[in-house]
Amino acid sequence: MGKKNPVLNFLIENGMYIVMLLIFVYFAASAPGFLTANNLARIPLQSAFVILIATGMTMVIITGGIDLSVGSVVAFTAVIFSIILKRYELAVPLAVLAALAAGSLSGVTSGFFVVKFRVPPFIATLAMMTIARGLARLFAQNTKIFIENPGIEKYSDFIMIKQVAVTEAIGIPYLVILMLAVVTLLGLVLMKTRFGRYIIATGGNEEASRLSGVNVNRVKFLVYVINAFLAAAVGIMMASKFMNGNPEFGVMWELDAIAACVVGGTSLMGGKGNIFKVLLGALLIGMLDNGLLIQGRSSEMIYIIKGIIILGAVIIDQIKER
């Protein structure tokens, strides 16, 4: 706030970008192979699934909620998608619809308990997280469900999905294009539409919003559905990419998504957040993962360093608030 130190102010205001730049420069200098077009292109691809979830998560967090269930929903929907494909002979549209519906239903359930019974979002989605994971394991009987119908690789509907998950157009993976499209769409929804405005208002002051005629219950309900729907879409793509539905997909992804939100400046108190910044936050974490791996660090070290960076990002944000 103070005008006395413009340099410090600038550093704090642009904290995330500066940290990102520093990390980038550091890896460029110290991790051979980091600064190649091939590797750099890999970062958004590796982060794409988490980013898709993080966009929905941003909305949930802005309303003052949290969603711990999305990682499990990814696994749950991947399993359902694979089972249907396997059992019902190439019924791709049916499989997609069923998986999306199953995913959305878990969002409906979380949202319903949050809105109707005032269950704290942390609890409601924690329950959903274990339920969805349990169902995934139950349906898959604790193994991977392989999509192995003869000829499926030639089935056009499936190929389309699979292509999104694994191939590229003009050198950019379809998945990255899809991710950017979703980020842009939801980013605009948040900034430019009535629904988005209501999300921010609800998180900022629920009672004042309600008294201004905002249907806060509907807003809170819908963000959980949207988030779960995105998780379901990710589940479908995961299954297509790996040609199986694994009940252990997406473990801890909800935490990665939340970390991306927080690094991207989303306030866990609600009322504040920007999806485009969350995209940057996720890319920052992705870059960290990528660079540390190239440096040959152990996965334990990567966890620890990531944790420290997340803390640092949040502290910068706190200082900015003052």
Binding site: V189, K192, T193, R194, F195, R197, Y198, I200, A201, G204, N205, A208, S209, L211, S212, G213, V214, G271, K272
Partner: peptide, 26 residues
């Protein structure tokens, strides 16, 4: 009365967004 973190303008239009943007887009 107010969503304190939102801008002055956003607070002014909070109750009349229905009329300003009959479709979702503001």
């Amino acid at each position: 009365g107010l969503v304190l973190d939102m801008s002055v303008g956003e607070n002014v239009t909070l109750a009349c967004l229905d009329t300003i943007s009959p479709m979702q887009w503001i």
